[in-house]
């Protein structure tokens, strides 16, 4: 019991004194997951919108695949990315294994289906509402997609935040492809796992506080967004 209290206190101290290791790890986490978020969004937003407005032969199958991909266990994604990037794998020559880039790749694969699926839901609803008008105004495909993305921006932002939350909280895949190397690929979740294993609860808890604070911030942002959706303040 005393150990835990001491750990909490020490962890808290690390946060308020902006411990160098803690800041370093936090910034790396943010860098990796924000990069993954930007790349995943660039793929998922147009893809989800396109699935919502275009009718083609394998549309249902594509949507089912997307939903299935959303359920992929991150550890398996990590394993696959590891195999692809390992020295003997097809992309081995790039030398990406155990770099932040490998972690970004894994996170992109994990959150793209999630963001695309949320986008698809929101866009399908909006497209049903706008369909006749946009057809009547003789809009191009590009104009349709841009209109839907703009007018559905709050739902899309919510989806993106959910994706970011999943990325920054994930541990299995990035542990495998990043290797949890100090000052190189160590991020919040992998550091917590390591420090806990070592029995150094102070740093583990300090990092845990940061992660919890980020999660609360995200949820607050999502909540605020869905409120402005109802009140239309922007």
């Amino acid at each position: 019991m005393n150990d835990i209290w001491a750990g909490l206190l020490a962890g808290f101290q690390l946060v308020i004194t902006l411990d160098a290791d803690l800041v370093d790890i936090t910034l790396r986490s943010l860098k990796v997951s924000l990069s993954a978020l930007v790349i995943a969004s660039l793929i998922a937003l147009p893809l989800g919108t396109w699935l919502a407005i275009r009718r083609f032969r394998f549309r249902r199958a594509a949507i089912a695949t997307l939903n299935a991909l959303m359920g992929l266990p991150p550890v398996v994604v990590g394993l696959i990315v590891y195999l692809l990037l390992s020295r003997s794998g097809p992309f081995g020559v790039l030398g990406l294994l155990f770099t932040p880039t490998a972690m970004i790749i894994a996170q992109v694969i994990i959150i793209t289906p999630l963001i695309a699926s949320i986008t698809h839901q929101a866009m399908r609803e909006l497209w049903a509402e706008y369909h006749d008008l946009l057809i009547s105004l003789n809009t191009t495909n590009r104009q349709r997609v841009l209109t839907l993305i703009w007018d559905g921006r709050r739902a899309l932002l919510t989806g993106a935040l959910a994706g970011f939350g999943r990325a920054i909280g994930e541990v299995g895949a990035i542990m495998i492809v990043g290797g949890n190397i100090d000052h190189a690929t160590r991020v919040l979740t992998t550091a917590i796992a390591l420090e806990t294993g070592k029995g150094d609860f102070a740093l583990a808890l300090g990092l845990g506080f940061v992660l919890i604070a980020l999660a609360i911030l995200l949820n607050f942002a999502i909540h605020t967004l869905s409120r402005t959706e109802r009140h239309d303040t922007w």
Partner: peptide
């Protein structure tokens, strides 16, 4: 249209 379509 009979039911006006309003952009949000």
């Amino acid at each position: 249209f009979q039911r006006p379509i309003m952009l949000r």
